[in-house]
Computed example of a mutant assay.
Amino acid sequence: MAAKQTPAPAAAAAKPRGMSLHIGLNAVSADHYGGWSGELAACEFDALDMAAIAKSKGLKATIPLTKKGTRGNALAGIRAAAKSLKSGDLFFLSYSGHGGQVPDVTGEEADKQDETWCLFDGQLIDDELYHELSRFAGGVRILVLSDSCHSGTVTRAGPPAAPTGAPALLSQRPKLMPLAVALRTYRDHQAFYDKLQHDLAKVAGNAVDPDAALAQVAVSGRRTGLVKKFKPTAILISGCQDNQTSMDGEHNGAFTEQLLSVWNHGAFKRNYANFHAFIKSRMPATQTPNLFTLGSAGVFLAQRPFAL
């Protein structure tokens, strides 16, 4: 009589994987930005510190700094992660540098401006970022931390005034491309930025407007119904409100400095909602970090920050 065979054990569930991209720019190319190089002090430190957290949690990190912080490298890094990661995996994207704006030519922005990240050789428009994130597989968790200015208005609060006669310090610099530079940069490269927006509008069709989709999340867990077509789930924490500026520092940006303090080398044990609240409580009234989500982020918000 044949021996009774023991059923093979069920295959263990695949362990979630993680990838991260950390962009830090202490300057931009004056060739693209009309002679403005936008020197900052701490953005490379910010990127390196975010990468250190990522590596400590088992994520594979890519770190394009200043001259390597190009549009091509940023898009390639995001697209590589989108191609590789599956449901349950984590993509951690951080940016530290100037925020800017270009005129909206497709008509979806109420203030007629599209917000940007000022990469070394050109700006990355918010519509582009939203489109790239929407290409991730369903169930992928995306964490975006941005220590920059993202306001679409020109009436944002300015940086605190230095005492009369005091020298301008790097630590007093806002991470904001000056309006005159933004206008000059757009004028010099209008065909490039207009084509980007028109091409994205054709691809998006009737997709949800990214700024409408970035609905603020209350601690109560209120969800937005505006992002039904967004398959992954994303948490975005920005360094300030839309009418404020994120400030540079000597060793870290103001937002990143407080984030690292709250994280405390991994001693922080609470969830993302608490993480944002603790960072916010340490910041001055002139710079209040904001929390947004894309997709169904309730479960993600309840997790410990950076956990695979």
Rank of each mutant, 00 (worst) to 15 (best):
S134C: 09
Y272A: 09
E108Y: 13
F255P: 04
Q113Y: 11
H276R: 10
L196R: 14
H189C: 05
A212G: 10
V181P: 05
R173Y: 00
G24A: 06
V227F: 10
L200A: 05
D104M: 13
A204P: 00
V219T: 06
T233P: 01
G35A: 09
N206V: 08
A12K: 15
L119W: 02
K60I: 09
A8C: 05
E257Y: 14
R79M: 11
G122K: 04
D121G: 08
G253V: 07
K55H: 10
R79A: 14
L170T: 07
N206Q: 13
V219S: 08
S134R: 14
N290K: 11
W263R: 04
D89F: 11
Q303F: 04
Y33A: 09
A2F: 11
S246C: 14
E44K: 13
K175F: 08
A191V: 05
I235F: 01
N73H: 10
P284C: 10
L65M: 07
R173N: 01
K202W: 01
G69M: 07
Q190K: 15
P232W: 07
S261F: 08
S146D: 00
A201D: 08
S171W: 00
L25D: 02
A302T: 04
L40G: 09
K68S: 10
G152S: 12
D31N: 15
I125R: 06
P7L: 14
G253F: 05
Q113G: 02
I63A: 00
K60C: 04
E250N: 13
I53Q: 11
K83D: 09
G107S: 14
Q190P: 02
T256F: 05
S87N: 14
A47P: 03
R79D: 12
L260E: 02
N274S: 10
G77C: 07
D111R: 13
D114R: 03
V203H: 00
Y130L: 09
K55G: 12
S56F: 04
V181N: 06
F120T: 07
G77D: 07
K269V: 15
D209Q: 10
G97E: 04
G100T: 12
A41P: 00
F230T: 10
I279T: 06
M177T: 12
C43Y: 01
A166C: 03
K195F: 02
G266Y: 09
T106E: 07
L200K: 03
A61R: 11
R71Q: 10
A234V: 03
D49E: 11
F275Q: 06
D49G: 04
L65K: 07
G24I: 07
G18C: 13
P210W: 13
S246F: 04
H131S: 08
R223W: 05
N264P: 02
D211L: 15
L59D: 01
S134G: 05
A12G: 13
H32M: 06
S29D: 11
P284T: 09
N73Y: 02
F120P: 01
H251L: 11
A81H: 05
A11V: 15
Y33H: 07
H98N: 11
L21C: 08
G34S: 10
D209G: 11
G221K: 10
F92Y: 15
Q244K: 08
E44G: 07
V28C: 14
D188T: 09
L179E: 07
D127A: 13
R304D: 00
L75A: 06
G122H: 02
L124F: 09
M1Y: 09
I63F: 00
V144C: 13
